[in-house]
Nucleic acid binder design. Sequence first.
DNA 1: ACAGCCGGATAGAGCGCTCTCCCACGTGCT
DNA 2: AGCACGTGGGAGAGCGCTCTATCCGGCTGT
Lengths: 352, 352
Amino acid sequence: MSEALRPAAQRSATLEDVARVAGVSRATVSRVINGIRNVDPAIQESVRRAVASTGYVPNGAARSLVTRRAGALALVVSGSGTDGRGEEAGRTQVFTDPFFGRVVSGVFTGLRPHGVHPVLMLADAPEAREQALSYLKQGNADGAMVVSTHADDPMPGLLLAAGVPTVLFGRPAAPLPVSCVDLANRDGARLAADHLHARGRRRVVTIAGPPAVRAARDRLEGFHEAMARHGMPYLPHAEADFTQAGGERAMARLLVEHPDLDGVFAANDLMAQGAVAVLRDHGLRVPEDVAVVGFDDSSAATAGRPPLTTVRQPVEEMAAEMARILLDVLARPGRGATSVIFEPELVVRRSS
Amino acid sequence: MSEALRPAAQRSATLEDVARVAGVSRATVSRVINGIRNVDPAIQESVRRAVASTGYVPNGAARSLVTRRAGALALVVSGSGTDGRGEEAGRTQVFTDPFFGRVVSGVFTGLRPHGVHPVLMLADAPEAREQALSYLKQGNADGAMVVSTHADDPMPGLLLAAGVPTVLFGRPAAPLPVSCVDLANRDGARLAADHLHARGRRRVVTIAGPPAVRAARDRLEGFHEAMARHGMPYLPHAEADFTQAGGERAMARLLVEHPDLDGVFAANDLMAQGAVAVLRDHGLRVPEDVAVVGFDDSSAATAGRPPLTTVRQPVEEMAAEMARILLDVLARPGRGATSVIFEPELVVRRSS
DNA sequence: ACAGCCGGATAGAGCGCTCTCCCACGTGCT
DNA sequence: AGCACGTGGGAGAGCGCTCTATCCGGCTGT
């Protein structure tokens, strides 16, 4: 909480005041304001006038106290400690990733019609996790949408245990009875594999995401599986951290070991972009010499030269659906966990 | 508010319960929990045990009701309607911009030590503005940090009128008595101008941001002013929307009219990145044929090839300072508006 | 030894709202 | 005429917490 404090504003009007002005009871004013039950139109009108003249605004805390709802939902960015970088640098990394922006955008889409606002919480370290958890238990938000990066992230389990209604972006690693939205990552990787194969690429490498991230593993496995079906059981791969710089380093390493490669699949667009940059640095042409396929179809896919062929993940839609599911859980509790899996789609651009 | 609703969880423990278990009064428990005034250590201990055994968590709404503090602050992204694009597309654009991510990161830095969480609000249209405003007036957040894109944005004025403690990122267009953080944009542009001039560039063009954005105007004017001092009173410029695609279009236009240009200053890195891409598409080498200087020093500056020379705007620090100022205003109200202006810095990389 | 203090704990009055009763007054049916 | 019922409105009991005023008991000072 800290020492936050509203300035000594003059006492603002309460229901009581409005009731007095309108010459009715508190209950009636409340009814008009919340649009509940029938109230004589004439009285409604006079109440409305009283509201306007007093400049009345309902007090959220008082309302929450009795309704036991906060009218806010948490958007929790969880997992991912600061991998060696400075604390803030790691944070900037996370929030600067187009993925995060798309999630926020989608969440707004899902929440806006209901007048609910997202509270941003970062649970990247044990104490931050505790803080976030206690904030939620205090009832400051009615539920949580969790974007969890690491598979072994304890946050979903903790939230579940705390009885906080929760929806995840991405299937949980451990089998938890919790709702989620996710992408068919393996299928997406297969699309990329089939495409590279169809383009005649036979010396293909992969830049994978962190193995601790479930989506990263699924993409890698899906890709390898599909390639195996095309008769290529072994594929070199390097791991990176979903950042462009990481992608660059991985690409450089792969080039040393496999100078004759002719195709690259990266587990996200940022890394693919890094790969393209390094390939060009080495005098290789994309796509003539090396075809590159990314994943996500984020803004990074169209930002670079050439624009990336990529596997589309409809992050905004997924996030909006996540918000809708949570709202739904809150509206009628007690129903089992649901999950919505989105289908990926290949978007062919000039990098392959 | 909508129909959000907590699930029928079993009644959680209240202060009363804890008091009963510990065999003391409610007031004493409250004191222990809030760490206020002297309480006998032995009693403190037994209260703590009672808290643990009951799993007590204070109810935020009840506390807010009496303390008149929410323990949350709003981060308002204001202005910028959806310029023709779809509604969600525009939102994604805003949130995907590295600038937004850096602001969020900085806000966390400033807020974390105080256990306060940011509530994200988007005020991009009249009704959204109303919604945000009423949410704030209800006391759901104790104050607002506003990132306003357009100079004629009414939000700061409305917040001020509503008595909501406010701090702006960027000076307000109209002279309002409101605290803010900002960058010395003109000085930053001057650094860019001096640098390009020192590099011997004499046919320089500018890709400006939307004239409705104050920072964009300041950068343009500062640049022109400095160039005039170097004996170049007239410089062609094109306006764009701070996006990479916009930067590309602007660059293409400028190339048609001024095929012999040898220097480009863009009002942010995203547009600079677009400029580089288009220059290369035209077979021009950066920096040999054309030197490019961006603005912000965002992740986009180091993402492309070549990495951009740019004017550093310490967005994270600025946002953290904005949060600190707001916290300060809340802690001791009634003091006049303050402003903190940050100094830009030239970061020379390979694009110039 | 008694007034005067003071640390330590309690009682209880709200904070502003919602919501469940309950009442008064028609209306329609038997 | 009598009764059930529906409809519009009021009274008042909390929701869980903080905080002021108050009380209690033991210690000091003269």
